[in-house]
Design a protein around this nucleic acid. Structure first.
Lengths: 148, 148
DNA sequence: GTCAATGCAAACTTTTTGCAACTCC
DNA sequence: GGAGTTGCAAAAAGTTTGCATTGAC
């Protein structure tokens, strides 16, 4: 049922390739990320699922540290959409965009495609009023890319 | 030197039109917002400037409450770009987009225009690598619009 | 055995809330 | 005068950090 996108194995392999250690906590976190790769998981959600799944206790700080490591390896992204906690998803997710409600925080995925056309049709197609087209593109700036 | 966009008077008028009260704190906050309408101000920055400007003491919670009111009136937007504190800007800012660095949080404005073309050229023009085109469009969803 | 990773606890930042006092209309 | 606002204090939510211990390789 879990299909496209990186599997947990690829995330683990990423860790190994950097001579980082593969612990039970990291394995559980990678599994959760791999299964949920189209979802918008918060660190708290990852924590809950990882604990439930692995049947071991994992500290929240471990989740944050693992997210940080995986982000540094370029395997996932950690961004904030609208208000509320930051969310995480795998780097190799299909490109997609989000509609984020400023009021309730609800998010909806936009299929990839012609961004401009999608924006032009937003109001009608999704009955979503983009009060101002405030679009954030998350990536890595030149300075940070150079500092690697 | 401050030109386009809503002036403080328009924000104040917005409050009045809803029979909300215009207090010294709100006047100061509106003035700060009007002056800085192209900047990405955090609530803390607004607080500091408003206090400095008005020479009165304003509680941070008042700033948050005022931001909330102005957002409810549709006069400004409050979003989170990347990590860190949320930022605020006036609703009638010229449409613009942001490049947000996932690592350092630095943001750069993209001029309005053809979003699609801009995305395609990002890497070269801004030496910015959009690892995944993670675009968030902030607006109001149908459910919230109906619930007004 | 070594060094990375973890757990725990504490701190921190940003934001929200309860409530009595205040003040704008 | 009365409803909307404020300040203050406390709490909540999300995240980060220090440090001794544990565990992967």
């Amino acid at each position: 049922m879990e299909t496209s996108g990186a599997g947990a194995e690829e995330l683990v392999a990423g860790l190994r390739s950097e001579h980082l250690r593969v612990t039970a906590a990291r394995r559980a976190i990678c599994a959760v990320l791999a299964e949920a790769h189209q979802e918008h998981l918060t660190a708290v959600a990852i924590h809950e699922r990882a604990v439930a799944r692995a049947g071991i206790s994992i500290d929240p700080s471990t989740v944050y540290r693992t997210i940080e490591v995986l982000q540094r390896l370029g395997l996932l992204h950690h961004v904030h959409l609208g208000l509320g906690p930051g969310i995480v998803h795998l780097a190799d997710d299909a490109d997609h965009h989000h509609l984020v409600c400023e009021r309730c925080g609800r998010t909806e995925d936009l299929p990839p495609g012609d961004v401009r056309a999608a924006l032009a049709e937003l109001a009608e197609r999704y009955r979503f009023a983009p009060d101002s087209l405030h679009v954030s593109v998350i990536g890595v700036c030149a300075a940070c890319a150079a500092a690697r």
